[in-house]
């Protein structure tokens, strides 16, 4: 008699321990609520590590992210952390960028260079984002502890700020307390959507630093707003994957989303206990750890020189 904590995953084609899947969902959901990222950059590699075929891991992960981000968005909405206006522009841009990204991947696959590009994009993006976020947050913390940090605007406008202010159709985003041209969130959304499509992720870990550093949105609004736009991005990916590739494992996704939805609630509450710089340092550390793992897998010889393509 098989114990009931072993679950058969019909699309992945093998079983997994329910406790392990719930735990993975819970931890990644916690991080999702805590940092406002979907957690795809963590969950997909973890699922692959426990033997889920990569294509099923990525597609089912998108499905569970829909639940985690819905749960997280609701929690952050009640905390007043969601800027729907800004999120709407980011979402439209993201959908456009994602569509372009899917076409780029299709062309690269035909050329045979897709895998290399995807992995290098991962390392470069994670390394750049994580490294910059870590360095900037440490610098900010040091300034704060030395009493030299001001909370107001910098005395002299940076070149970036001058460029952003020169864009047409400037409008006020009340919730985020910033004024920008809608071109900016549309363009950033498109870039993240494009990179997300290439890397097979929702792209939250790219979006969060971009919103913080390029849109100058307060960290807690970034978290809620990014979760809001990721709900729609990942719902779209889930549907498309299910329709075209049949790779969404509903059993796997349901167990993960039970864990992640609950974890996201605790993550959202816990995030209030940290200041923005501490949050950024923690997220940057996780991003750099994941980047290190991918880099090691790229440079160390593999145990087996063959791998399955797709699922059985």
């Amino acid at each position: 008699m098989t114990p009931i904590w072993t679950l058969y995953l019909p699309i992945a084609g093998h079983s997994a321990q329910m406790i392990l899947l719930l735990g993975l969902g819970g931890v990644v959901g916690f991080l999702s609520g805590f940092f406002g990222v979907g957690g795809g950059f963590l969950m997909t590699p973890l699922l692959i590590m426990i033997g889920i075929p990569p294509v099923v891991a990525a597609a089912s992960d998108s499905n569970q992210i829909v639940a985690a981000t819905t749960s997280g968005t609701y929690a952050h909405y009640r905390l007043g952390n969601v800027d729907f206006k800004l999120g709407g522009f980011l979402l439209v841009g993201g959908l456009i960028g994602g569509t372009i990204g899917v076409q780029i991947i299709k062309v690269l696959r035909q050329l045979g260079d897709a895998a290399f590009l995807i992995k290098i994009t991962y390392v470069v993006m994670l390394g750049t984002m994580g490294g910059y976020m870590f360095w900037e947050s440490i610098r900010s913390l040091r300034k704060t502890s030395a009493g030299a940090a001001g909370t107001g605007a910098p005395a002299r406008l940076s070149r970036w700020a001058r460029l952003v202010q020169a864009l047409p159709f400037q409008m006020r985003f009340e919730r985020s307390a910033v004024t920008h041209s809608p071109i900016l969130p549309l363009a950033l959304g498109a870039i993240v959507g494009l990179l997300g499509a290439i890397m097979g992720l929702g792209g939250g870990f790219i979006m969060v630093p971009m919103m913080v550093y390029l849109l100058r949105v307060p960290m807690h609004i970034v978290v809620g707003t990014n979760l809001f736009q990721e709900v729609f991005m990942c719902a779209n990916v889930t549907f498309m994957q299910s329709l075209t590739n049949h790779t969404v494992d509903l059993v796997l996704a349901i167990v993960l989303l039970v864990g992640s939805s609950i974890g996201a609630q605790f993550g959202a509450r816990f995030s209030r206990k940290f200041n923005a710089d501490q949050l950024k340092i923690l997220l940057a550390s996780i991003i750099l750890l994941v980047m290190g793992k991918i880099l090691l897998a790229l440079v160390l010889p593999p145990h087996i020189l063959l791998d399955l393509k797709g699922i059985r």
Partner: peptide, 24 residues
């Protein structure tokens, strides 16, 4: 999943949204 991909996809998204909302 294999014969009715669209229905399976809609079901997957609906389950996720409802569960996420109910948890909230």
């Amino acid at each position: 999943a294999r014969r009715h991909g669209a229905l399976h996809g809609l079901l997957a998204v609906a389950v996720a949204v409802v569960f996420g909302y109910l948890t909230g």
